[in-house]
Design a protein around this nucleic acid. Structure first.
Lengths: 337, 337
DNA sequence: TCGGCTTGCGTAAGCGCTTACACTCGTCTC
DNA sequence: GAGACGAGTGTAAGCGCTTACGCAAGCCGA
């Protein structure tokens, strides 16, 4: 492995000049820069990350804290983040918030403090007070995305508006008896209802229903296909069943579609179903949904953390909400007369 | 941030002893170790990753090269890897093989050579000769998983056996006219048919059909739901349609199920469908599949790279194949008489 | 013509660890 | 009782970069 000294010798300059020429920090003449680059290329020189990081304090690496790595939504967001970070030379190291509390504590108390990252992106994790304090103590830029508490700020969709938009779509079709499948408040973790995504979707639903003078129905469920199926089965087996179901995620909506098929209801003739997310399969299943552009969310988060890391200490702009859009497909229609 | 010196001073020993006491390398008396630990805890000391890595040459970090981060299969494997690495204190940095050739080259020529990782796991990427050479030149342990070429070795399922098992399940039910939806050989990238996963599945299919004296049908498609749907539509619209479809992935099988529904065929009465993977939704849809336990694959890959990194240069055992299992559900049944 | 600026580069002091080597003691062994 | 040995610790030399500071040279305006 060629070192800085090798390059310096080959180019006939000092190591300081090589460092400056290659990194672009400080001044070097055009001619020197070219000579150094040529020498570096000839030797196949690549700077050691640890040496560079030790000397400069910059790691060129962003930590991403995710719950549940194997969920489509997070994987997609991650892809969006990577698409912004990689071209800028930043690596991504992935921290999975483990179920095991010991490992979880270790992440915040040790791993993150090793100085390996220049900034942290936190995805949808319900952090405890202690964890938020630990993150603060890092004195690193932090960008949250869809966090269920307000402390860290961060990017977010106007989830209440999402819930309202979905509900108004169904109301606009003429539905009055609409059920919402979502996550119950305080379901695990120290969430704040004012920020928690499922709670806000539900609030939007309830507000829209109230405005329309309709009575909201709600069934709690976890954010999985199977959870959505079970919740929908419960709803659809009841004596009076709703004419429409608004599920808080596309995956839950798939479960509802499955439940409808099992019970023998036709969608959308007998039942309208819609979800939220913009999941890969939604188009195929013809699912009406609120797309929240998770890939773009990841891109935004990536840009935000880069700005914060490069930045002059200016906090990340978290004021404007992330976009969403109603995508009308085949699973929603007016109720039967 | 407390440094080694601070701890040494607090514990009344030299920095060397602190380093030894905390890392467990070299000898220290029980009493000293306790004293050092106490001092370190009191100061909230955590060793700097870059300093430690620079001095020792160990990064405690594994690079994972993935194509298509947002595919369920890879996300699940990644989760499996993380579940093994995190408890051992290893971080994971994620390298997405970008579509852009410039960035792709940069990954192998620069990023990976910065000395940030102790080992590399490569997931299902069709590497070029140059990339394989670059990986070799790193002189780091490499563990492949499902690689479409033989050069790097690595873990793999006996995909031919998978194809055979799936086909024999359908043959055993009495099907003779079975179509396979898979990826055509050489579909993008320098793959070797002898190692390429889709090709091997197809070979297993053809071999089983030949053994049964049946005529195989094959339709190429990419590994997506939509691709599977299109391929199935083509098959099912033909004058004589197969009685069973064996799709090379669960996602393609979902597409086939959708196609059947669109065309008005009942599954499994009019058409049997099966896939491969063990996808999250398979159980819900009642899809018969060959589960290949992707999470466990990730765990194996994680263990293998840890062994290789810790190891005495012994190559990773790649001889035994990874397990798979037929999971019979509701989408396969005997053909109608 | 001269002081002051800018530009380009070298010198050298770290950054915060790890570890080879040396040293001091007890403990054994014969 | 002397020599050998191992256990526990300290000393100090790096690991391979970055960058503050200093210096020389060229340039400018007054």
């Amino acid at each position: 492995m060629a070192s800085l000294d090798d390059v310096a010798r080959a180019a006939g300059v000092s190591t300081a000049t090589v460092s400056r020429a290659l990194s672009g920090r400080g001044r070097t003449s055009e001619a020197t820069r070219a000579r150094v680059r040529a020498a570096a290329d000839a030797l196949g020189y690549v700077a050691s990350a640890s040496a560079s990081s030790l000397a400069s304090g910059r790691a060129e690496n962003i930590g991403v804290i995710v719950p549940l790595m194997d969920r489509w939504f997070f994987a997609t967001v991650l892809d969006g983040i990577a698409s912004r970070l990689a071209p800028r030379g930043y690596d991504i190291t992935l921290y999975n918030v483990a179920a095991d509390p010991g490992q979880r504590q270790r992440l915040f108390d040790r791993t993150l403090r090793r100085g390996r990252v220049d900034g942290v992106i936190v995805l949808s994790v319900a952090l405890t007070d202690a964890e938020i304090a630990a993150l603060d103590a890092l004195e690193l830029p932090v960008v949250g995305l869809g966090l269920p508490r307000g402390e860290l700020g961060g990017l977010r969709v106007d989830d209440t508006a999402v819930g309202r938009a979905a509900t108004e779509h169904l109301l606009g079709l003429g539905h009055r008896d609409i059920a919402h499948i979502g996550q119950s408040v305080d379901a695990g973790g120290p969430s704040d209802p004012a920020y928690d995504v499922p709670t806000r979707r539900r609030r939007g639903f309830e507000a829209a229903m109230a405005d329309a003078g309709a009575t909201p129905r709600f069934v709690p469920s976890d954010f999985t296909v199977e959870g959505g199926r079970r919740a929908a089965v419960a709803l659809l087996s009841a004596p009076t069943r709703p004419t429409a179901i608004f599920a808080a995620s596309d995956e839950m909506a798939y479960g509802a579609l499955t439940a409808a098929r099992e019970i023998g209801l036709r969608v959308p003739e007998d039942l309208s179903v819609m979800g939220v997310d913009g999941h890969d399969f939604a188009e195929l299943f013809g699912l009406t949904t609120i797309d929240q552009f998770p890939h773009a969310q990841g891109e935004r988060a990536g840009e935000a953390i880069l700005a914060a890391v490069a930045g002059d200490g200016e906090p990340v702009d978290t004021s404007s909400s992330l976009p969403f859009a109603l995508v009308t497909r085949r699973t929603t229609a007016p109720p039967r007369a």
